[in-house]
């Protein structure tokens, strides 16, 4: 792959529109290779209207986010699980 990507930190704003917790600090498991890593470390392509986030180990698409004026469309079929750190209750 070329190096024309950002990382998952760039998704913090767009995902904060949808979720109350910071999803970039969550640990995701890739459907394709089974590797786990922080959402912040995914390789992110595109911006503003649509993002594609790929697994840094195998390049499989783990997350897609499309923002239209009145909706957000989130595709997580490449993510097997997300472990979200929470403050102790």
């Amino acid at each position: 792959m070329t190096q024309d990507y950002q990382d998952g930190n760039a998704l913090a704003g767009p995902l904060a529109e949808l979720f109350a917790v910071d999803v970039t600090a969550a640990t995701g498991r890739c459907v394709s290779c089974g590797d786990t890593g922080r959402v912040a470390d995914l390789r992110v392509y595109g911006h503003e209207l649509g993002w594609v986030a790929r697994c840094p180990s195998c390049d499989h698409v783990m997350l897609r986010l499309v923002r239209s004026p009145d909706a957000a469309w989130l595709d997580l079929q490449g993510t097997l699980s997300l472990r979200v750190p929470l403050p102790p209750s």
Binding site: D4, Y5, Q6, D7, N9, A40, H47
Partner: peptide
């Protein structure tokens, strides 16, 4: 920049730093 971060992070791992203690932020082309 992305290339810089990749190189430094990989070098740190090569020097024996635990990848779990390396946090990175990359600028893309945008």
């Amino acid at each position: 920049p992305t290339g810089f971060v990749e190189k430094v992070a990989n070098t740190l791992v090569g020097l024996g730093h635990d990848p779990r203690r390396i946090r990175t932020e990359r600028f893309g082309p945008t």
